[in-house]
Design a protein around this nucleic acid. Sequence first.
DNA 1: CCTCCATCTGACACCGGTGTCATAATGTCA
DNA 2: TGACATTATGACACCGGTGTCAGATGGAGG
Lengths: 370, 370
Amino acid sequence: MLSGQQHTYWTCKFYSFADNNQVITQNKYTMKPKGKATSFDIAHFAGVSQSTVSRALRNSPLVNEETRRRVWEVAKQLNYKVDKNASNLRTQQSSTLALLLFEDPTGDESQINPFFLNMLGSITRACAKQGYDLLVSFQSTSQDWRADYEDSHRADGIILLGYGDYMDYQSRLQQLLAQDTKFVCWGATVDGREDLTVSCDNYGGGKLAAEHLLQQNRSQYVFIGDASDHSPEFFARFKGFRDTLTAHGCGLSERQIANAISTEESGYHATRSLLANNIQFDALFAASDLIAIGALKALKEAGKEVPGDVAVIGFDNIAAASFISPALTTVQQNTTLAGQMLVNNLLSLIRGEAVTDTLLPPKLIMRRSA
Amino acid sequence: MLSGQQHTYWTCKFYSFADNNQVITQNKYTMKPKGKATSFDIAHFAGVSQSTVSRALRNSPLVNEETRRRVWEVAKQLNYKVDKNASNLRTQQSSTLALLLFEDPTGDESQINPFFLNMLGSITRACAKQGYDLLVSFQSTSQDWRADYEDSHRADGIILLGYGDYMDYQSRLQQLLAQDTKFVCWGATVDGREDLTVSCDNYGGGKLAAEHLLQQNRSQYVFIGDASDHSPEFFARFKGFRDTLTAHGCGLSERQIANAISTEESGYHATRSLLANNIQFDALFAASDLIAIGALKALKEAGKEVPGDVAVIGFDNIAAASFISPALTTVQQNTTLAGQMLVNNLLSLIRGEAVTDTLLPPKLIMRRSA
DNA sequence: CCTCCATCTGACACCGGTGTCATAATGTCA
DNA sequence: TGACATTATGACACCGGTGTCAGATGGAGG
């Protein structure tokens, strides 16, 4: 014989009222540990309506100071937390961002490129600083993307991270753009692509590497990475490197370029094949540190001294770069700043503000290898 | 003069109806890119009720095969995605887990312990495999925890990861337990704590390290890490190490123990102070790889050969362990399995099944340093 | 032809908040 | 004292799904 229709606060979970308005179960009152308190419960205990509770808890100027205090007090006692699902549903936004991390299709499930893990760390921090939560999801480039985080209202925007295969990437990005999904990409700005990107100045980074090697009067250069435009970031590093060499009269022929994806193993094999083909070189620029580390291994096996016989420069400045022997000279990307810019730009985009692509300055970290 | 009260499917966003049931804005129909389709929209286009749409999309056996196909067809055309907020609100569960990562209070904001980043990777994968999303949040141990993910219905359960300061940890965990929050801890099982844990057999790992060093007829041992019970994991590694040595007649006096937190720097300083105090040792066991790497640096600076003068064993098998010179012998924790167990156990707990603490077997990875 | 049951569908309450609107209470000023 | 502005509050629709219940339909069986 319970009634709970006329006054909404009677739907309070803990108390029930008879039709004559008398509390009939107060004596049995127990706060079930699992029964989370709702704003109706607070409304009842504070003796106000649920609307007022909602306003009070969000510090609306409309509620009386004394009322607000009482509501907060009760809320604290009941350990009340706003139900985010209800709140998000009503306000149509989630104060959550989603991070999609695209892995190199190495097949090896266990290891993730440490550079991206670093980025993940700084993105997480940047999100927290802005009061946003972060949904993280790893994606295989080949598989279907789970990019529906915004469609399903789980996230307000998406951050894309990874050396995506360009061809595959392209069509997906178009689709996201068509759906008006808010997203930011880490990587390279690509002409003709209208997505918003934050990236390291990869061209400038390649230039830094070239200049450093030129200063050491090296004469025969090789590049290991992807010199096609499949991977725009690697391509930009390559161009910066090659253009600078060319400007100083040192060309880079087809034979002095070896393809590799961003893994140690791939770098190792690429270097071995250069050596096997009898390519002469005393300076090596790898498109990433993992590649460079693989290259160091191949060089050591071949009896080449680093930096004596060959100078090696990597890219990223991952932790391992400082541990390996010889310590790796590399082009650092500022991951902390990158994470902040990705998050800030995405939030601006979501707010509808004008945002432009961001280029972050690279920095040469000099160690033993070059 | 729109009406949308009597029949719920009139609240469809794209069509509006006059009181006489005539479509009045059909000619103006445009699917706004931002206006995400709802189940009402599908209902309209498929010529069924919204209830049926909901059922059809979840493949309820109640709907006719032909109807189901039509609904799916329309849903696909409209690029419909279930609104997770609405769905979660109604079903009172979120198919999301939250990961709280506690950082060592190093003050240095930029680097995160690579071991935990690896764990993060495997946890993310394990979540995806189970159809759950993952919210990631980094926490400073000192700060207030943001453990309200479950209270606010953002997550169904929480995974706690990190070498938490035990004292601080304890009271928070009690609170979580009191609130009946579903959570799993990575770390060590601690007597008297009622939380569910998944951990590496740290004691057994310490034992592996000791046995390996004993086999090499080393005679003077040191341990670097935390030998107090502030950090239960390190303590268990220490106990396994010490007990095994003791069982073989090799003690470990107070002076042969140096405290360090899990950073390279801390390991470096701890090792230096051992050397400065003139402690003689030819075998060193570090509670983590980062500590071991710091120790290697200190040893090298002091002119000690590794493994000639001193054998060094670490714990974790982070990526850097194989890059550093000499390559680090270490006790590996199976992060892939750990991630899976954390997720699986948490899901079992959420489902109300009986779950017990899980111990994962460690494995000695033999490299150059010992 | 009526009963019974299986199959399918629509109406509706509900989840727990947010925002709008109406209104009661109080104060201000002519 | 009456007109009006100000302040504080409650009622209620609404967000977009899910689950229950009632009812429509059609075929089988007596």
